[in-house]
């Protein structure tokens, strides 16, 4: 157990010749809620995806709960992890996507019990019981038998959060969880995320919801062109931004 949940040191990521991350260094403490802000193309989503190894980093070091992501260090050398170990790592990190990505051929309940049964080998009855608790928790106790396309965007995203929580993750990643939602549905998803934050879940949230960042985040991080240019508690970040680019960004968005 380490007090640092996420530790990034000079993380680089290239897609072909385009360098998307140009040395990202940051820490997320256990129980901390960090919001990543930045224009599209600033690399915030890519960085988030690196944390659970959906993208492989090209340089630097990235650790989650004291363990290297995707590699094992033997002496000075890094060894690529076997798929099995990568899966084990991902099972402990929950992720919520912009476009929900609920499994379309399964009901809400089936979506939630799938991974606990398949990956954690949890008995189905137990997984179902837990899934019902989680559905109640996100306010959808009566929609367990609905297919994703019978649910509104906000409901789908809440099911997606319940699905991630079913694996009892130690860290939750949110990739613009409300960007694909109608404005009046944003609140219900943010409420679930707020309650999660209050319970002490470690969260890294890529978002454009300034209200959420101001109210819930312990720290707000600004990314620009693949680098972190500012990192501060919300009062300071929104009240007295240091970097010129942050001021521009905030003036456009607030």
């Amino acid at each position: 157990m380490s007090d640092i949940m996420v530790q990034a040191e000079g993380v680089h990521k290239r897609f072909g010749n385009i360098e998307v991350l140009k040395g990202v260094s940051m820490q997320v403490a256990r129980g901390e809620v960090v919001c990543l802000l930045g224009a599209s193309g600033s690399g915030k989503s890519t960085f988030l995806r690196c944390i659970n190894h959906l993208e492989k980093i090209d340089a630097g070091r990235l650790l989650v709960d004291g363990q290297l992501v995707g590699y094992r260090q033997v002496g000075e050398r890094l060894h690529e992890l076997h798929d099995r170990d990568i899966c084990r790592h991902r099972a402990e990190v929950g992720m919520v996507f912009q476009r929900f990505n609920l499994f379309g051929h399964m009901t809400a309940l089936q979506n939630i019990i799938e991974a606990p049964v398949l990956v954690r080998k949890m008995p189905k009855a137990q997984a179902t019981l837990r899934a019902r608790e989680l559905l109640a928790r996100v306010g959808l106790a009566d929609r367990g038998d609905a297919y994703p396309n019978q649910l509104s965007g906000g409901q789908q995203q809440r099911v997606a959060i319940a699905r991630a929580l079913a694996m009892s993750p130690k860290l939750m990643l949110f990739d613009e969880p409300t960007s694909a939602l109608d404005p009046e549905l944003v609140g219900e998803v943010l409420d679930v995320m707020k309650s999660l934050a209050r319970e002490g879940m470690t969260m890294v949230v890529v978002t454009h919801e300034m209200g959420f960042a101001r109210e819930v985040a312990d720290r707000v991080v600004m990314m620009h062109q693949g680098r972190i240019i500012e990192s501060a508690p919300p009062e300071q970040f929104f009240g007295a931004p240091q970097h010129e680019r942050t001021r521009q960004f905030l003036s456009k968005i607030l």
């Binding site: 099995r84 799938e114 991630a164």
Partner: peptide, 20 residues
């Protein structure tokens, strides 16, 4: 996104193919 969601939940490539 379906495969990614499966991967993010810790499912193996084979499990994702077969179940998702």
């Amino acid at each position: 996104g379906q495969s990614e969601a499966g991967a993010a939940l810790g499912m193996s490539r084979l499990q994702i193919m077969r179940r998702v």
